[in-house]
Write a protein that binds this DNA or RNA. Structure first.
Lengths: 340, 340
DNA sequence: TTGTACGCGTTATCAC
DNA sequence: GTGATAACGCGTACAA
């Protein structure tokens, strides 16, 4: 049976109030008293019960991180940074996976409000619709949105400029001299922000380069997994007039696409250039290494955590958006000097 | 202000006891009463406060998953399976990263006892010493060990047969006709179980094949990251008499090693065969695809979660060990028929 | 079958 | 500066 505050108080012959003050580091405690209490605490090996504390204060010290799948490298790397950043501010992190299930996203957003299991939610959906957010009253649990780029002034938001990221990558492909540039990662519906924005950025960059869009070059991918990239690349390479370059809307798609090209004996980048978006570590060691757009995950994690902490401390503060920087990283998959 | 049990009772003109019975699904409630209470619950949008429930019952419904780094693909894939399995049993999962810090491991193990933040710990250390476990009294918080293979009868244990896994992989390399077989992933100290056991398995398989061990072929790796594999492979390939094959003690090490070989213009597997252990998805799409030892992560996750749940329900049950199956998966990195 | 009352361990509100 | 005591919301022994 663990020692309680009361036990310590009895042992030190003081009131629970005084012990609580000492534990909380409250200033109004005499030095002698503090030493006395500290001694009793050590002797009884007392540790505060965080559950009781939570019941009283309403704070759990826990953040929820909601991602589609934790084993998608981008989310794993993000989670790592977020857990570290949260730990620095005294928060622990609970991870929830939505799969790609709308109902789970909805349940988490609506249900989490009153449950008091965590103080705030870091919500990084691969697929999301703004209507989903209607489920979440602004006054409810603190929420920080991650990775989308549709700021409506109601929620805190650490955004990625998806449009510009895709445009920059496309522009790079244009600059390498290719004009038959395909894309993988579109989705049949316009409801999901990431594919829509990246798709728009891709088309905008083509347009600016004076390259007309070719519908058959815009391949869809239900999820952003390697297998989806592989399948989509096969469809592209089966075309009568296959592309010279492919922009994949995620690095994982790109890994699949590169493998598909290799399985057909194509050389990358000589026969086909491939670029991704995310900058996961895998792409730095792959053969060829992957040209991609870095999203500055540590920055996103740091901002997200400090922002949710601020909102927890002051729920009335106006919502703010911050856009994470990004940068095209040119590697072998678009510009190898020597064939691999 | 969320509605409480008392509010519901007042609204329905019944006692809190009755409402509690309905919420808990207790059988001894009349049908009319149940409908009445359910109506009040719906009307007030009442949801039980899990913190108060925890304070009362001592159960949090939360499991802690302790891994070195969540962004190491093996752990990310394991976490995914564990979160899913836990969700099926009504548990949520909190993730803690130890880095490779002994103090953090120790703090988690010793400190977690009384904190009541979770009901049990799933502990999957990359580095661990049995002495570390001395920190954790058997009577304390339910604990299930993951991935090591030193059963002492005190802890529940979902083990991997590290020795045999490494031996099987080594044997496969021998069967492909190579005799100059190096290994990456040893560690200067014998304190960490995984490198020691995999190292022993590697040596045992060599011995069985009548191949004498060469100290310069046993390369160490501080962590099991791509960069460590890259650096270790460079050292091996710098040897006057470089190996024809390398067994890497993790797939991530293998990815680094393959990249190092490629950077020297070596062909895999013609000039150098590479094998790993873990079977992360990355190795199924890499060029060449990676021969590895599959560890059946879903099995490990399922067993670990059901075991910790059982122990939470009955802390006095005798500790048990279960060994997860493994299998060598032969891919291109050791046996490609056509050069890539 | 249902109602009453207490305790889980902490923090906060009063007094002194 | 310190002490008593009332909440926080729920589960359950005990009583009815």
């Amino acid at each position: 049976m663990p020692a309680t505050l009361r036990d310590v108080a009895a042992h030190a012959n003081v009131s629970v109030r005084t012990v609580s003050n000492v534990v909380a580091g409250h200033p109004h405690v005499s030095d002698a008293m503090r030493r006395l209490v500290l001694g009793a605490i050590a002797e009884l090996d007392y540790r505060p019960n965080p559950v009781a504390r939570t019941l009283r204060t309403g704070r759990t010290g826990v953040l929820a991180l909601v991602v589609p799948e934790i084993d998608v490298p981008y989310f794993a790397e993000l989670a790592r940074e977020i857990i570290d950043a949260a730990s620095g501010l005294g928060y622990r992190v609970m991870i929830d996976q939505t799969g790609h299930d709308h109902d789970r996203e909805r349940a988490l957003l609506t249900g989490a409000d009153r449950t008091m299991l965590f103080d705030g939610i870091l919500f990084s959906p691969l697929v999301t619709r703004s209507e989903l957010l209607e489920m979440h009253p602004t006054t409810a649990m603190p929420l920080v949105l991650l990775g989308e780029h549709e700021f409506d002034g109601r929620y805190d938001h650490v955004a990625i400029d998806n449009h510009q990221a895709a445009a920059d990558a496309t522009q790079h492909l244009v600059q390498t001299g290719r004009s038959k540039i395909a894309a993988i990662g579109a989705q049949p519906t316009q409801a999901f922000a990431t594919p829509r924005q990246r798709g728009a950025g891709y088309l905008a960059a083509l347009d600016e380069a004076g390259i007309g869009p070719r519908p058959e070059y815009l391949e869809s991918a239900a999820r952003y997994h390697r297998a989806d990239g592989y399948a989509a690349a096969e469809r592209l390479l089966d075309l009568a007039d296959p592309p010279e370059a492919i922009l994949c809307f995620s690095d994982l798609l790109a890994m699949g696409a590169m493998r598909a090209a290799a399985d057909r004996g194509l050389r990358i980048p000589e026969d086909l250039a491939v670029a991704g978006i995310d900058d996961i570590e895998e792409g730095r060691y792959s053969r060829p290494s992957l040209t991609t757009v870095s999203l500055d995950t540590p920055f996103i994690a740091r901002e997200a955590v400090s922002r949710i902490a601020a909102r927890i401390d002051d729920p009335t503060a106006p919502a703010a958006e911050i856009v994470a920087p990004h940068a095209v990283l040119v590697r072998e998959s678009t510009t190898a000097s020597t064939p691999l």
